[in-house]
Design a protein around this nucleic acid. Structure first.
Length: 592
DNA sequence: ACAACGGCCA
């Protein structure tokens, strides 16, 4: 149980956070020292020439042997001299391999170490890693520490974590800066689980006594990535109490995570903490805030903040312009959106595929397909690939405006052009086809979607079932229902209602009532409208007993009857039976 | 580091 804020806090409380030293600098000195040692004395005359030959000739192996027939290439001192004079890590590795394979050079620890350091310095992670596989080579712990930094820098975080483990086994504890660099790399590569692995290793080593605000910042971000933002927030609160303040990145992660969870008050509070602590919220902070507002449909407020930022001299970047343009389009402020599009270009921020998609989507929504097409072509001319998303925007726009045939044509073109259709493509088109009454084609597409292995979303299943019920093919709807349930589909309450009323309208009264009971067994509350339609339909067919049952259920749930339903009941009472109407009215008045 | 497509009408 190491991953609790409180256990982390107890370590901060006892740590000497803030007192920094620079182990990295010390490490660098070590490596330079070993490079500067004078080991090339014997080869001073030839080494420059060897370096030149290997640098300039692509195939120097034979040249070297013929030019220096009496030279002892297997002497480790020659290799050290070469390393010292050759500034290219990869050439050095090639030279090393050549010496090993063709010159009887048997690599000693010191040669391997020196080469390893050179490779690590050159950030050649993979080359350094290949050297580690050399039989019998064990680098110095300090070299391994540099290697960890090299790996972290190159995103090879898993290997970095392994090396931490190796160092732990030999009792060597890397500096805090190295731990921090690796934590940061784990976050950047999205390997949050490795942050916690590293943190557990830290807990087991002496470095835990020295962890600083940077370390805590990474832990906070890891919590945010893990959707445990409240843990991250707790950690932040504690370090703030201790007078420490993490940097913008940490605040941004928290604000972003709170926005994601729609805890806008917390996000806003953090913004104020930043300002109070003298941190200037940056463009990314505001991006998170504005995006959070947009997601909560507070577009106007987002737009206000954006304008406010510009007034205060912030320079919004392309992402922010794109976000705002999208927000304005969603508000249907098309004029403002267009204005920003040109303002952005005027400021030298060229639209990218995201910006184009937003604008194309806007034109499609308002049915201006000429302009949508124009932008679409412009986007492709600029070298941006047409994507599933842009095609979806076009297809859903075309369907929205009843141009289903064109949407279908585009859909077919997509597969011809190798653009993947996703669930949104199918859903949009199915919706469009159903709207046009083309149920056969919609069903065909639905099956195709299943064949493709796509997971149909609730909405596309629901709309098909609805339409089948309305068209009088409730049995087909039930078949589809059962098929979908076997695929772990969860029907919505309303979908039950379609089946109940569908069955009733087709005269399957008993079955309709069974479905109604099924809902109640499942503790689902049927909609009022389901009852209304059901009762009207039962009335039409003189199913008086079923009406009483339905009425009872409806009133128990707490629904009241619509005026026209009461009127129908009373009318039925005139036509049929006194008792029946009496019972109904009794029950209605009992509950009201 | 930050951003994109649907659904609405049970």
């Amino acid at each position: 149980m190491v991953r609790t804020p409180s256990s982390i806090i107890s370590f901060i409380r006892h740590s000497s956070a803030g007192a920094r030293f620079d182990p990295a600098g010390q490490l660098r000195n070590l490596t330079t020292e070993s490079k500067d040692g004078d080991c090339g004395g014997n080869y001073r005359d030839v080494i420059n020439e060897i370096c030149l030959i290997t640098r300039r000739r692509p195939r120097w192996e034979h040249t070297l042997l013929s030019e220096f027939p009496s030279l002892n290439f297997s002497d480790p001192l020659l290799f050290h001299a070469y390393l010292k004079h050759q500034n290219n890590a990869f050439l050095s590795l090639r030279f090393f391999n050549w010496l090993c394979s063709y010159c009887g050079f048997s690599p000693d620890q010191s040669s391997c170490n020196a080469l390893f350091d050179v490779l690590v310095d050159a950030k050649a992670c993979n080359a350094a890693k290949s050297l580690l596989d050399c039989a019998g080579f064990t680098p110095e712990p300090s070299s391994l520490e540099c290697y960890i930094r090299c790996l972290s820098h190159g995103g090879m975080v898993e290997e970095a974590v392994n090396v931490f483990g190796k160092l732990k086994n030999v009792g060597f504890c890397p500096s805090l800066a190295t731990w921090n660099a690796s934590l940061s790399a784990c976050l950047k590569t999205g390997r949050t689980n490795l942050v916690w692995t590293l943190y557990e290793l830290m807990m087991a080593s002496d470095v835990i006594a020295n962890i600083d605000v940077e370390t805590i910042g990474y832990l906070i971000q890891a919590y945010c990535n893990d959707n445990k933002v409240s843990n991250g927030y707790g950690l932040l609160r504690h370090i703030l109490e201790d007078g420490l303040c993490p940097d913008n990145t940490v605040f941004n992660s928290l604000i972003s995570a709170f926005s994601r969870e729609e805890e806008y008050a917390r996000a806003s509070e953090l913004l104020h903490v930043m300002i109070a602590k003298g941190l200037a919220p940056d463009i990314f902070t505001y991006q998170e805030i504005i995006n959070g507002l947009f997601k909560r449909r507070k577009n106007l407020e987002g737009f206000r903040i954006f304008n406010d930022l510009k007034d205060r001299g912030y320079l919004p970047d392309r992402v922010m312009y794109t976000t705002i343009i999208k927000g304005l389009c969603d508000m249907e402020w098309h004029g403002e959106a267009r204005k920003l599009w040109f303002e952005m270009i005027r400021k030298g921020l060229l639209p990218n595929e995201y910006t184009y998609t937003v604008m194309i989507n806007r034109y499609c929504r308002i049915g201006d397909f000429d302009n949508a097409r124009k932008l679409y072509n412009e986007m492709c001319d600029k070298g941006y690939e047409e994507t599933t998303v842009t095609c979806n925007a076009m297809i859903s726009g075309l369907c929205f405006h009843g141009m289903t045939d064109e949407a279908q044509r585009l859909f077919e073109e997509m597969s011809q052009r190798g653009i993947v259709c996703d669930i949104i493509t199918y859903n949009s088109l199915i919706r469009g086809l159903i709207k046009k009454g083309n149920l056969i084609e919609a069903k065909k597409l639905f099956n195709e979607l299943l064949v493709q292995g796509l997971e149909p979303s609730t909405s596309s299943v629901t709309i098909l079932i609805k339409r089948l019920c309305e068209d009088g093919d409730t049995q087909e709807a039930i078949r589809l229902w059962k098929d979908m349930v076997s695929r772990n589909w969860e029907p919505m309450v309303s979908t039950y209602g379609y089946i109940v009323t569908g069955l009733c309208e087709q005269g399957s009264f008993t079955e309709a009532m069974e479905w109604l009971f099924e809902m109640l067994n499942k503790k689902l509350k049927p909609r009022k409208r389901t009852f209304e339609t059901l009762i009207q339909c039962l009335l039409k067919n003189d199913k008086l007993d079923d009406i009483l049952v339905a009425l009872d259920l409806m009133l128990t749930i707490g629904y009241t009857l619509q005026k026209n339903t009461i009127e129908s009941l009373v009318k039925k009472f005139d036509e049929k039976s006194f008792n029946f109407a009496g019972t109904c009215l009794e029950r209605i008045s009992e509950r009201n």
